[in-house]
């Protein structure tokens, strides 16, 4: 666990520059594209993850990771755990941006908390498809996979809309915070956790058997 923390710290150090780039990004997006939470909350988090993954395979950096006194399982685990700080960062930035926009009067709508949360929840879900592919394809496939996932992020917004059409209960929850039954949300949450967990197991299996 302790090692995972150092690995996440490593990831944050290698994307330091990229994190600084987020400031102008949020400023520009804040002006042009205000009502799409995907670009605020999901895209930066996903880009951070993709960036750290790409940098690990870019040179021979996975060799470096494996040479460290850390089991391979921890290396994979750290990538999954790193989603947490990325989500928090994106979430915090979005909220901050909203309050700035609200105070200068650019928007008068209240912040749609639940829609925002739903949007951020999309990030680990996408990542759980991305990471096994990343470990499986390694350096060769990374570029293609990255392209595909950046496109998928763009679709996320549409996907959430679609989801709300299919499940009116969800739309109801997003707008009012009330849910008719507990069954559906519970199933959804369980399914969500299951997907994450399976993804982790697959990544682990792929990566521990691999020649670096």
């Amino acid at each position: 666990m302790y090692n995972s923390f150092h690995l996440i710290r490593k990831d944050l150090i290698i994307v330091q520059k990229f994190i600084l780039l987020l400031i102008p990004y949020y400023m520009v997006m804040g002006f042009t594209n205000f009502d799409n939470y995907t670009v605020f909350a999901l895209l930066p988090a996903m880009l951070l993850l993709i960036n750290t993954c790409t940098m690990d395979v870019q040179q021979n950096n996975q060799k470096f990771l494996v040479s460290l006194p850390v089991p391979r399982q921890q290396i994979v685990l750290a990538k999954y755990l790193a989603m947490l700080p990325y989500s928090v960062l994106s979430f915090a930035c979005t909220v901050l941006l909203y309050f700035i926009a609200f105070s200068v009067g650019r928007t008068t709508e209240p912040l749609a908390w639940r829609e925002l949360l739903l949007c951020i929840a999309g990030f680990p879900l996408l990542a759980s498809f991305y990471l096994p592919l990343h470990y499986w394809l390694g350096r060769k496939g990374t570029q293609v996979v990255n392209m595909v996932f950046i496109m998928l992020i763009m679709l996320n917004f549409a996907a959430i809309k679609q989801l709300m059409e299919w499940f009116p209960g969800l739309a109801e929850w997003v707008s009012s915070g009330k849910a008719d039954s507990l069954l559906l949300p519970v199933i959804a949450v369980l399914g969500y956790v299951l997907i994450l967990f399976c993804s982790y197991l697959i990544s682990l299996r792929v990566f521990t058997a691999k020649d670096i």
Binding site: N3, I13, I14, K17, M55, Q58, Q59, N60, N61, K63, F64, S67, L68, P69, V70, P71, R72
Partner: peptide
């Protein structure tokens, strides 16, 4: 490799660069 203790006792020097090229020596 459940034994990171073993790796801790090893220093590896490779002829190819295994470090993150965009970082400084200090980082």
């Amino acid at each position: 490799e459940q034994v990171p203790a073993v790796k801790e006792r090893i220093g590896y020097v490779s002829d190819e660069n295994i470090y993150y090229e965009q970082l400084t020596v200090k980082q």
